[in-house]
Design a protein around this nucleic acid. Structure first.
Lengths: 217, 217
DNA sequence: CGCTAGCTTGACATTCTTCAACCGGAGTGG
DNA sequence: CCACTCCGGTTGAAGAATGTCAAGCTAGCG
């Protein structure tokens, strides 16, 4: 573990700055220290789908691959803790503990991707927004070591457009559904970005997910 | 590796048979030997999204988890090679090589899931079908050690309904788009399940993906 | 003070779903 | 042997959800 410290270095990016483009060769892997970054795929005609939302402690890159498959973009000011790929990979081979940890993290991401697939493939626009909000609420409050009680408030890390790319919607639809949830008293907005959830369960009811299965671990 | 053989056993399932239900406790992990199985998520009201399509050599289960997060269903006659979870997990700890291999496989699955997310979130029905067909064509022909030349033919492992669950569509839309691709000469159908692709590039053109980026590794 | 970026809202167009009818082949039982 | 039925699939017509285009709003900033 101490050896890990020997090969690490930090990089910072301003909000909006690209970190790497799909197809780029990158000689490091990294872990997010602070800020928010996104993984996105773009089609020729400009349609875009977010495929990863990276918050603190999330991992970027494949130990074994030289190139990156997705655009990685800093969406707020971001700091990365980077490791040169080669020494990192060697260490991975020597330190089974780390590769097991990495496996666990990857399996978690895979689970998240699969939940995301359900959202993209089968949920209505309103359910998509509600699901997104509850996911963010969970991640934010868990990051703060808090519990998801009845009264939750948090800051959206994404613009409406980025939310649209996350959810496979247009930004107009996102905006309309946010307004609709607000009209119906499910959420309150303080400014454009701060969301207050007076009753978290009523938000969960809007997600379309198995109700009260969410004991909120 | 020899030790692995000591703890393995085989199980078989008939087409249509459930292998495990989401939430079940399962004391083994497994690898698909033959046949096709699916991972699906179901919402209360019956909406269903496939989140994994398991062909030969694909892996089922999490080394560290007792319960399973998705419904696993045999969609053709399936044979699994199973390992009791505990000994498997112990072996994972002792044999770093295996956990690295598993990490690679999981990262591949994550990449596949992300490609899938683009399909679900941003592609039109026609593009979804074309993408699905080209994915299956690749997997089938690669499995047979073949190359994806100009003239490709393969058997669909899924019913129209299962394709719909894969692509986030209704089965009617799947059927219509299959007919449309056939009318336009992109594919030919022999019976309901066998697909002939006279010109693979023209199928790729319909996927919406970056053209000719697909050098078909 | 006016501009711009991010957002909201409206009117209209499009895509996909929903509901319904129908088709054909494979079993199945009388 | 022949109707019958069931399953998977196809097709049509109508409706709903979401996308598209366009206008306008607000806050922050040069």
């Amino acid at each position: 573990m101490a050896h890990l410290n020997g090969i690490k270095f930090y990089k910072s990016y301003k909000a909006g700055e690209p970190i790497v483009w799909a197809g780029d060769e990158v000689d490091f892997v990294a872990s997010v220290v602070g800020g928010v970054a996104t993984l996105t795929q773009t089609m020729e005609d400009g349609r875009r789908q977010m495929v990863g939302l990276l918050l603190a402690s999330d991992f970027i890159g494949r130990p074994n691959r030289e190139t990156v498959a997705y655009d990685v973009t800093a969406i707020s000011d971001v700091t990365l803790c980077c490791f040169r790929r080669k020494p990192f990979h060697e260490m991975l081979v020597k330190t089974p503990h780390i590769s097991q940890r990495l496996l666990e993290m990857t399996l978690d991401e895979l689970d998240a991707a699969r939940e995301w697939m359900l959202i993209l493939g089968r949920k209505t626009a309103r359910e998509k927004i509600a699901s997104f909000l509850s996911i963010i609420a969970r991640r934010e409050t868990i990051a703060e070591g808090g519990d998801v009680g009845t009264n939750v408030a948090f800051e959206l890390p994404l613009t409406r457009e980025a939310m649209a790319d996350y959810l496979g919607l247009t930004l107009e639809t996102v905006s309309r559904q946010m307004s609709s949830l607000k009209r119906d008293g499910v959420i309150q907005l303080e400014g454009k970005r701060r969301v207050v959830v007076p009753d978290f369960n009523s938000l969960l009811n809007e997600t379309g997910d198995d109700s009260d299965g969410g004991v909120l671990v």
